Amino acid sequence: MFNNIPPITRNIIIINIIVFIISNLVYRDELFNALAAFYPFSPNFHSWQIITHMFMHGSLMHILFNMLTLWSFGPVLEQSLGEKKYLILYFISGLGGFFLFNLWNFIEVQQITSAMEALGLNVSEIYTKAAASYKGNMNITANTQEGVELSQSLYNVLRTPMVGASGAIFGVVAAFATLYPDAKLIFMFIPFPVKAKFILPIIIIVSIFLGFSGNVGGIAHFAHVGGALVGFLLALSWKKHLYRFH
């Protein structure tokens, strides 16, 4: 059955599985610090993380959900778009997720640092202590609850990377919904088929709400939105040149 999956989708799934096994069972800390996508102004950020984070997953459920979704929607798009456009769709959607997620991070960091500076706190010390290679003490100059909380918030942004193919996967789902809006989809938690064109706005609205509400739960909701928007725009621009299934 696996051999029947088109080559690009199949190879993406295989690479993700291999990286997941190695990064979670062998060199977890080293690979997560090197390959996961840190905030671009974090001392832990490296340019290659823009791509490599798409192959990193933090849990078995995370990679299962992403790869099953790719397996469900990817083959149709790979065959209809062709390998080149499908690859463009996948990786540009992933980049869109990275960009929007970190745009929100940038806004949050600006708010935190402005508040810290207003309290007379040393922002640069948090950047220094947030480096994965830092071996010194973790004492900070903040001596009020507000200062400690702000320092911790900044530290968390700088030390918490984004991992997963979710931006790319949401781009694939959005592209499918754009090209095949009347396709009926069946989900485990919905007892009846739903047309693809209704799924896309629900995904975006829910992700935006969760992102702004702060109910993140370790999930990069704005990465989902960024990937979905890119997938939608790319599919929309290609749509008139494609033969569609009936």
Rank of each mutant, 00 (worst) to 15 (best):
F73P: 10
I169K: 04
L35I: 05
M116H: 11
V230Y: 00
E117T: 06
L25W: 04
L210V: 03
N143Q: 15
I204F: 08
W48K: 08
M61L: 13
F73R: 00
F232T: 03
T113C: 11
F176I: 04
M162R: 01
T69W: 02
A165D: 13
Y39W: 15
F101V: 07
V230E: 01
I63Y: 01
G97L: 07
G217S: 10
F73Q: 00
K240E: 11
M56T: 01
M188L: 14
M67L: 13
Q152V: 08
W104H: 12
I202T: 13
H221Q: 14
R10A: 03
A130P: 02
L210T: 03
H62N: 07
A223P: 02
F212L: 13
S23W: 01
F176Y: 15
H221W: 15
R28M: 08
G164M: 03
P191T: 04
R159I: 06
I199S: 10
L210P: 01
G74D: 02
A175D: 01
I92Q: 09
I203T: 08
N102R: 07
S42E: 07
I12A: 00
H221F: 14
H57Y: 05
S80E: 11
A235N: 02
S47T: 12
L233I: 09
I50P: 01
N16V: 02
G214K: 12
K129R: 11
A177F: 01
Y39R: 10
V148R: 04
A118E: 15
N16S: 15
G231F: 02
I204H: 08
V172Y: 00
E149D: 13
L150S: 04
K239E: 03
F245C: 09
V163I: 12
H241R: 15
G226I: 02
K240S: 15
E117F: 03
Y243G: 06
E149K: 13
T141K: 15
I88T: 12
V109D: 04
E108I: 03
I50F: 13
R10M: 05
S124C: 06
K129F: 02
G211R: 08
A34T: 10
H246P: 05
L70Q: 05
A131E: 12
N156F: 10
K240I: 08
A174S: 11
Y180C: 01
K240V: 06
K85T: 00
N33I: 07
A196S: 14
G211Q: 06
F222N: 01
G74N: 03
N16Q: 15
Q49V: 03
F170C: 14
N24V: 11
S72I: 08
G231D: 07
L150M: 08
V109Q: 10
S166Y: 14
I190P: 05
F98H: 11
A115K: 14
F55M: 05
G217N: 14
V76S: 12
A118C: 09
A142T: 03
I205P: 04
L233R: 03
P40Q: 06
A37R: 00
I219A: 10
G167R: 00
